[in-house]
Simulated assay, not measured.
Amino acid sequence: MENRLRIRASDGKAYEVDRWCPHSKSDLASRGVVMGSKLVCTRHNWTFSLDQGGKCTSADATINACLIDDW
Rank of each mutant, 00 (worst) to 15 (best):
L28C: 05
T57I: 12
W20D: 06
L28G: 01
C56K: 03
T42Q: 10
N3W: 02
S37F: 00
C66L: 13
W71Q: 04
I68E: 07
R4H: 08
V33F: 09
S24Q: 12
S10I: 07
W71V: 05
R8I: 15
V40E: 13
D51K: 01
D11H: 05
K25H: 12
C56E: 07
S30K: 15
T62W: 06
G53Y: 10
K55I: 00
E16H: 04
L67N: 00
F48D: 02
R6C: 03
S49G: 03
H23S: 10
D11T: 08
S10L: 08
A9H: 12
H23P: 13
V34F: 03
D11I: 09
K13T: 10
L39N: 06
G32M: 03
A59I: 04
V17R: 05
T42I: 02
W20Y: 15
A14G: 00
S10T: 14
E2C: 09
G12A: 09
C56N: 12
W46A: 13
S30A: 14
D27T: 08
I63D: 06
V34P: 11
D18I: 01
D69P: 03
D18A: 07
G12W: 07
S49F: 03
D18G: 05
V17T: 07
C21G: 10
A59C: 13
N3I: 01
G53H: 13
S26Q: 12
D60A: 12
N64E: 12
M35W: 00
V33I: 11
K38G: 00
R31A: 12
H23F: 07
M1E: 15
S37D: 08
K55P: 07
D18F: 01
D69A: 02
W46C: 11
D51G: 00
N64W: 05
S30G: 13
I68H: 01
F48S: 02
S26P: 07
P22F: 05
T57V: 12
C66G: 03
L28K: 03
C21W: 12
S37M: 09
E16F: 05
D27K: 09
K38C: 07
L67H: 01
G54W: 00
M35P: 00
A14W: 00
C21T: 14
C56S: 14
W71H: 01
T42F: 01
R6W: 01
W46E: 07
C41F: 04
S37A: 07
D51C: 04
K38Q: 15
K25Y: 11
R31N: 13
V17P: 08
P22N: 04
